[in-house]
Design a protein around this nucleic acid. Sequence first.
DNA 1: TAATTTTTCGACTAAAAAAGCCGAAATAAA
DNA 2: TTTATTTCGGCTTTTTTAGTCGAAAAATTA
Lengths: 200, 200
Amino acid sequence: MQTKTENGTKRDLNRENILKIAREIFSKYGYKKTTLDDIANAVRKGKSSLYYYFASKEDLFQAVIMKEVEILARELEIVINRNTDPVDKLRDYILTKLATFRNLANFYHAIENDVTAVEFIEEVKRRYEQDEIRMIKRILIEGVRKNEFEIYDFNLAAIGITTAIKGLEMPLSAGNYGSVNLERSVDIILKIMCYGIIKK
Amino acid sequence: MQTKTENGTKRDLNRENILKIAREIFSKYGYKKTTLDDIANAVRKGKSSLYYYFASKEDLFQAVIMKEVEILARELEIVINRNTDPVDKLRDYILTKLATFRNLANFYHAIENDVTAVEFIEEVKRRYEQDEIRMIKRILIEGVRKNEFEIYDFNLAAIGITTAIKGLEMPLSAGNYGSVNLERSVDIILKIMCYGIIKK
DNA sequence: TAATTTTTCGACTAAAAAAGCCGAAATAAA
DNA sequence: TTTATTTCGGCTTTTTTAGTCGAAAAATTA
């Protein structure tokens, strides 16, 4: 018998392959227009075989998105661990997140017509919120330690900032991408927040 | 009452608009994945309204393709009427046709998976064949008049050349685009044909 | 080799989506 | 007002798709 780990690896490899291909197809056609047969053909398996790896189409799609989200998370982790000025860090964090999120939304045609996809992505955002708050908190704590911020309740502050970021995301989700100058909006909000935060 | 022509114009304008938008959507998703609702939404009409202008989805798709084909035909007409050396003209004709056809096939995802679309395009090719033979014949006749070609049966010669062109199209339809150097293939075939055609 | 486990798939069903139809309503023109 | 044009909601029929199941195939182990 294979050891369980070896076995798991083999299976996971297949899974990964399906995910990779499914990602391409979903990103090309969106959730609704992509059929499991499309994916099955592309991975050269029968449709039924997909169910050996994933419980449902929805499940597969979520797995694909989750993988994307992990990439985003990793990028953000890097930003956070860079040794930069806390304000810059905040700025980079927000910009990185917005940029990647825009891609996500674009990718899955979440916006135009595909209601189901939108809901998934909303769901992901919701689940991610707690992580976000934690990350922001880390930045704030670091800022205080470096004697640049002056904050009494980290939790509340982090929640407040998270909310502000949501505001920045809105125009993205709403679909008028190009029209908004992201960087500019971010700087404006940052300025406002800073004058309430930075030690005088 | 509107005059019949005015009326026709208005209706045709609507038709044209539908065609234009349908073309975009078909080219994005392919025949199968495009639904009449997609198109109807895009033109801001009810799906039923489309049936006022087109008899069926197939009908609409064919109209879209026909329009593309007309564009091709117009380009070829221009090539034919240019005052160039007959051999060059033959060469330009073939290259222009292949280039445009490649676009068509690419566009409608005719190749990958979408069986129905492939059939349509094959059908179009078939219908176009007669025109093609006629056009080639014109080039040949001109060549003889200019004392560069020596041909006894224009019809047979034109059919032969048309067949050769079909051979050039094959790798396109088969899907291995990049791999083949079109221009080179054309020149080789042309050379072969010329040494059987050109007056010594 | 035989027994066991993993993986694949064809055939099927139920549910959803799409094409297509029709009559009536809205709109525009006369 | 009358007539012609255009739109569309709601309906039926057909097609497509997600998802199930059991059995076959392939791989693994003993």
